[in-house]
């Protein structure tokens, strides 16, 4: 099967699911339901694409197919920020506190953290694995810190944090959504300048330098782009980077190519398919009694065990 055929199949599947999500079980109040569903589906498409895209790029610059950008600790930082706000001001304040302010603070802090991490470590050491290791330690540190505060606070307040702990597309703020799209769009535009280097980067650092890629500069820019995309997506819908590992690997398996133009587009489509299908199951079958993270982690886990078993037999 040719790559273009595979991409068409994925596109048809994605569009089909989107339409199914929008128009099935519409009921009589469609003028109320439809706009809400449209908002949800837009949020899914945007964040799903951003996660898929940044995971593929991240795996290429680290030359490793089992890492996700969450390893640098952005997810845990997000939870820490949320926990810290509630710990200091209480949950009533969170609901009082303007969502826009919360969004701004979180995005800025997360991007700042990624940049600092990059600046202090990568600049000096010139080794991306060192950066990942430190990121991992920071991530663990942030989660422990959040957990510590979560244990101390009132159980009712903890409920509020728990909401933030799972990704959800049910309450996406429209204004923030547009801001996010703008930020992600800018990051993507900037990325186009570096798109041609990805195939070469997947051959490894030495080969990339040999072929004339200004490795440090290119990797730094890509890293910043990833940090922006991940931060915005996480703040918009909650920690959702887990999805990246699954969709990137499904895309590699399905498309079997090294060309990033195809891979990135494919991974985005797989991501949209997974999220829309997951959301359909959550809403229509489980009637909101579970979250989409649970569904996708379950399916992803099963798929991974399948991959492992198949590999070990071969």
């Amino acid at each position: 099967m040719r790559n273009s055929t595979k991409l068409i199949i994925l596109s048809v599947l994605a569009v089909g699911l989107v339409l199914a999500f929008l128009f099935t079980d519409l009921g009589s109040n469609w003028d109320y339901v439809l706009p809400r569903r449209t908002m949800k589906i837009l949020a899914i498409i945007v964040t799903g694409s951003a996660i898929a895209f940044s995971t593929v790029v991240f795996q290429t610059i680290t030359n490793n197919r089992i890492l996700t950008p969450s390893i640098i600790g952005l997810d845990s930082l997000y939870l820490l920020i949320q926990t810290f706000i509630i710990f200091l001001f209480g949950s009533t304040n969170l609901t009082l506190m303007n969502q826009h302010v919360n969004f701004g603070i979180s995005v800025v802090l997360m991007i700042l953290f990624a940049l600092l991490l990059y600046h202090f470590l990568f600049k000096r050491e010139g080794n991306i694995y060192f950066l990942l290791l430190i990121g991992l330690i920071f991530g663990t540190f942030f989660s422990s810190l959040s957990e510590f505060m979560q244990v101390l606070i009132d159980p009712n307040e903890f409920q509020v944090i728990q909401d933030a702990m799972f990704a959800s597309f049910n309450n996406v703020n429209t204004d923030l959504f547009y801001v996010s799209v703008l930020l992600m769009g800018l990051a993507t535009l900037y990325f186009l300048k570096f798109e041609k280097y990805l195939d070469v980067l997947s051959l490894g650092k030495d080969t990339a330098i040999n072929l004339g890629v200004e490795y440090d500069r290119v990797v730094q820019r890509l890293f910043i782009i990833i940090a922006v995309l991940i931060s915005v997506a996480t703040v918009l819908v909650g920690p959702i980077t887990f999805l990246g590992l699954l969709v990137a690997n499904v895309a590699y398996e399905f498309l079997k190519t090294y060309r990033h133009r195809v891979l990135i587009f494919g991974a985005m489509l797989v991501s949209i398919i997974a999220l829309v299908a997951g959301q359909l199951i959550v809403e229509r079958i489980f009637t909101f009694s579970t979250t989409i993270s649970v569904i996708i982690n379950f399916i992803g886990g099963v798929y991974f065990i399948y991959l492992l078993l198949r590999e070990s037999r071969a």
Binding site: R65, G204, D206, T207, N210
Partner: peptide, 16 residues
Amino acid sequence: SKKVAILKQSNNLNVR
């Protein structure tokens, strides 16, 4: 890179 090319001793590729 149009002037000098290098081939290192270990060439493990992650891509097929």
